[in-house]
Design a binder for these strands. Structure first.
Lengths: 234, 234
DNA sequence: ATTACTAAGCAACGAGTAG
DNA sequence: TCTACTCGTTGCTTAGTAA
């Protein structure tokens, strides 16, 4: 049972917002469309820090690969790196994109039964009840979506189930999203789970409901279904 | 001669990127569309800092007015404040808006002749020459634009003229942008200046060129002109 | 003018713990 | 469980200065 750590955020140190001051300043002064000639002291006066601090911040942002540096005729010039632009694009997308009404196509797959194990843990179970007001059926329905499901769900407000530790074992947090599952004309309200530690990738959705979804809808592995993130259940 | 400090960036401490980690995490977990239930320890595990640090960061972001806090059924809930959303919107604009081909309508106004004084300072003059390759005529043409000119120009890559100090006097930095000035069919390539310290507001554009623009175009106070930011002169 | 070093001060961090 | 306190340590920031 190898659990992978899901990256809710990028790797520390290489996240653009670890160097947000430098990146934002560069963007504000045109560093998105080309190299900007800027000295440590100028950056310092804009960010209201010393020349030394500003120079250091710049070097570190360059080291982290978020800012590109070159030598111009009148000193060093900097621009926002393509790597940082990529991260920014994703972030801005979250900001500007209206909540999409997406019906994710997905195929029912079989889990390994560990969903039951986790749901039985008081640390998780109590939180689910508190947040959603129902005692979940002790088993998850696993779907393999046709695309990256987490990227779709994460645009919605998550209800966070906090992690905890029992004895010497740590259990990670779980991002949960209210969802609707469709099979033909049948509709089930449920909750999608994206655990911090999971055996699955971002295209797998684990669903819970107050009852066995499989039995209620009469589905088996391989059945095609549609799943949609929603703002709230009920 | 009262010089106002132009705000290139927002006030320190109340800038969203001073709390970028918290704001970004909140956005990533849906805090844009409503309150998100999140504990210090959860935020900590996402940002890879301790529970204490995460709680502190949250409180500080709340104090700064960037994050709103409320008490939910299962603990505190947070959302990105409208104040922060405003800052983010402006930032996103810089990022997503294509460089607009704007012709700013403006009226020629008379300055107080201090343009000449600043241009004569070696600290500025040498940098202008180095960057733009011409010795500026010792006087600025001042325009009062019909809208906030700085907000338009700042979408373009700026060439920064660094500040300096002579004796005990400090001279702030100047953001400069290549521009084109139009009067009827006549066109002049010039450079727009937005000094850190200025007597004017963001709707006033100070222009320099290798020659006297006023004489070349035969204009006087009150003449209507059009000014357009461009990527480069020549 | 610039960047970058060192030393001293101070703010932020994590560990432990209380409420 | 949570938040929030203290405290010792770490690491960032600044001033001064060299190159």
């Amino acid at each position: 049972m190898v659990a992978l750590k899901r990256k809710f955020l990028d790797e520390s140190g290489k996240r653009w917002f670890d160097h947000a001051d430098v990146v934002v300043a560069l963007v504000e002064f045109g560093g998105l469309h080309g190299y900007v000639r800027i000295s440590g002291s100028s950056l310092g006066s804009m960010l209201e820090v010393s020349q030394q601090a500003a120079s250091r911040k710049l070097s570190r942002a360059v080291e982290a690969g978020l800012v590109d540096k070159r030598t111009g005729s009148a000193g060093f010039e900097y621009t926002v790196s393509e790597f940082a632009r990529g991260q920014l694009r994703r972030f801005l997308n979250l900001f500007t994109a209206p909540l999409p009404r997406v019906e994710l196509g997905a195929t029912v797959v079989s889990g390994v039964g560990e969903g039951r194990f986790f749901l039985e843990l008081r640390g998780y179970g109590r939180q689910f009840e508190l947040i959603y007001g129902f005692k979940p059926y002790l088993g998850t329905l696993n779907l393999k979506a046709d695309q990256n499901a987490f990227d779709v769900f994460r645009m919605y407000p998550s209800k966070i189930v906090n992690g905890f530790r029992t004895g010497n074992r740590r259990f990670g947090l779980v991002l949960t999203y209210p969802a609707i599952l469709r099979l033909g004309s049948q509709v089930v309200e449920c909750v999608a789970l994206f655990p911090e530690y999971s055996r699955y990738g971002d295209d797998v959705v684990e669903l819970i409901a107050p009852f066995s979804i499989k039995k209620k809808l009469g589905i088996a592995d391989g059945t095609r279904v549609l799943v949609t993130p929603v703002l709230s259940v009920g």
